[in-house]
Write a protein that binds this DNA or RNA. Structure first.
Length: 270
DNA sequence: ACTTTAGCCTGTCGGC
DNA sequence: TGCCGACAGGCTAAAG
């Protein structure tokens, strides 16, 4: 499941193979993604040089002279460098054919991913209202504390809200709350100033650790080089219902919160 | 203004 | 062996 560390791992994996090269042809085999891919998109990017690949939250931006090609991996998407001769499989929806023969392939079984073009990507409807980057200066204990004021929503749901902070999905929200020893169901407005500081530090730490380990592979995530991520081995609570908490030994609890699984330690998290 | 819910998709897995 | 329902989940839009 691509969250920020997986997207960043992908970015780092593919950048050396595509930056500085020119898109000879963009092949869209399946336009039915999260939003239908604009039929005019291949023409808009053809013959353009990829100057850089940047990331905003979970979006990857292929910066070409006239704007950016925006890619979101959804929950099952991946981008890989493949041999152009390799036949496309059922879920290989898009190919970037580059001028030196390199082929970048977008594969996404569940088709929750997206592919769009914007001349000013940060002003695009989907990116405009995003909160600060969790690893940037805009995300601080003060900021998060301000966001929590008067909110009755659970702290876990608040940190997963991309308008508050980007890139924190279910896995890392669970892990960060465990590290910060905060109960996921606690009302955001009842988290102390000191604890929001800890939470910010925990979110940063868990994301950095995951990036260092190439992301988390649960079933099918692979980076741009096709290798899985190893952070799964470092998970303390996620997907560990019934197993012993690494801190106190008590069984990790699983509860459904807002349609998604929440894992936590009843003793360690308050 | 905030909070909740439905919906988009398909592969995988447990139960029968 | 095969069928079926539940589950996985980021994100938006609409409803409450």
């Amino acid at each position: 499941m691509p969250e920020l560390p997986e997207v960043e791992t992908t970015r780092r994996g593919i950048a050396p193979h595509v930056v500085g090269k020119t898109i000879e042809r963009l092949i869209v085999r399946e336009p039915r993604l999260r939003w239908p891919v604009d039929p005019g998109l291949p023409a808009m990017v053809a013959e353009r040089r990829i100057d850089s690949i940047s990331r905003r939250g979970k979006y990857l931006l292929f910066n070409i002279g006239t704007g950016s090609l925006i890619v979101h991996l959804g929950m099952s998407g991946n981008l890989r460098i493949v041999d152009a001769e390799q036949p496309a499989g059922t879920h290989d929806h898009v190919d970037w054919r580059l001028d030196d023969g390199t082929c970048l392939r977008f594969s996404d079984p569940r088709r929750f991913g997206s592919l769009l073009f914007a001349s000013a990507p940060l002003e695009h409807r989907l990116l405009r209202a995003l909160g600060p980057e969790p690893l940037g200066d805009g995300f601080s204990g003060d900021y998060l504390y301000d966001c929590c004021r008067g909110r009755r929503t659970a702290i876990k749901q608040l940190i997963m809200n991309a308008r508050i902070v980007v890139g924190v999905g279910n896995i890392y929200a669970n892990e960060a709350l465990f590290r910060a020893r905060i109960h996921p169901f606690r009302a955001a407005g009842r988290v102390s100033r000191e604890r929001t500081e800890h939470l910010v530090a925990a979110i940063r730490a868990v994301l950095c650790d995951a990036i260092e380990q190439g992301g988390t592979t649960l079933r099918d995530f692979v980076g741009g080089d096709g290798r899985p991520g190893y952070f799964s081995q470092s998970l303390c609570v996620y997907d560990r219902a019934g197993l012993a908490c690494a801190e106190c030994g008590r069984a990790v609890r699983r509860r459904v919160q807002g349609q998604r699984a929440t894992y936590y330690c009843v003793d360690c998290q308050r």
